[in-house]
């Protein structure tokens, strides 16, 4: 589904990705871990199409197409979803009307009829329940005055509504208490299916107690320095990252 080859990217003159390779198939859950500044969030940003990042080398193929060639909204409509690490607050834009526009843009792209108001509402209710998102929040302005946990849950709620094929969760677990973390993980598990893939970017092993990854990759200095299964995450939890930095690339 997604293939990243030798990806190099630069922001503000600094190279943050330095030849990253990754292959993600449908149905897989990949966890990407690594110390601060290793390039985890840069990877998410490049995949979502943030314009400040300049890709200087490498390719990213998504469902056979050149992902890097697509505008951010086209990626989104094609099923790439990024849960933001820091979701923005947009006063005056209501959560629901924004989401309705987004859902119908995605549907139009997929040659589907727009949802009727009734169906949209129905779906909203279902998904709110699925991810345990307070309906009062859904009617407020987008993320305005939301707590950190509420913002993250809103991201998962939007993910549920938009039904993506590739979801990238950028440190969605940071700053969440254990209950919120469980709700987020539950949401991801419920939405996971054999057609969908997840890239879960996290700093802590904690989240992986609830979402079991098929692969764990360690990112350091803009490259994946080690890959393994879920046990790698446990090993990291125990030993930290330092031991990996010293070893040569083995994956």
């Amino acid at each position: 589904m997604l293939e990243i080859k030798n990806l190099h990217a630069v922001i503000d003159g600094n190279e943050v990705l330095k030849g990253l390779n990754l292959k993600v198939n449908a149905g897989e859950i990949h966890a990407i871990m690594g110390p601060n500044g290793s390039g985890k969030s840069s990877l998410a940003s490049v995949l979502a199409g943030r314009e400040e990042f300049e890709v200087t080398d490498g390719d990213v193929t998504y469902k056979g197409q050149d992902l890097l060639d697509m505008d951010p909204e086209i990626r989104a409509r094609d099923g790439v979803f990024m849960a933001f690490q820091y979701p923005v607050e947009i006063p005056g834009v209501s959560n629901i009307s924004f989401l309705k526009t987004a859902v119908n843009e995605v549907r139009e792209h997929q040659k589907l009829e727009p949802l009727s108001a009734r169906d949209f509402l129905k779906r909203t209710r279902e998904m709110q329940e699925l991810v345990q998102f307070d309906s009062a929040l859904a009617n407020r302005s987008l993320n305005e005055g939301f707590s950190g946990g509420e913002k993250k849950r809103n991201e998962i709620f939007q993910m549920a509504m938009l039904d993506p094929t590739l979801a990238i969760l950028d440190e969605t677990d940071s700053g969440l208490d254990i209950d919120a973390l469980r709700i987020v993980a539950d949401g991801v598990n419920k939405l996971h299916s054999k057609d969908k893939a997840f890239i879960i970017i996290t700093h802590y092993q904690r989240l992986l107690d609830y979402i079991v990854p098929d692969f764990v990759h360690v990112l350091n200095d803009g490259q994946i320095v080690r890959s393994g299964d879920k046990n790698l995450a446990l090993e990291l939890e125990e030993k930290g990252y330092d031991w990996l930095k010293k070893e040569p690339v083995t994956s």
């Binding site: 314009e51 834009v93 526009t101 987004a102």
Partner: peptide, 22 residues
């Protein structure tokens, strides 16, 4: 905010218009 809305599938024009209205 523009990027956020575009990352959810809104076209640049729609995202702009949504922000202006807000």
């Amino acid at each position: 905010a523009l990027f956020y809305l575009r990352a959810r599938g809104l076209s640049k024009a729609d995202a702009q218009s949504m922000l202006v209205n807000a």
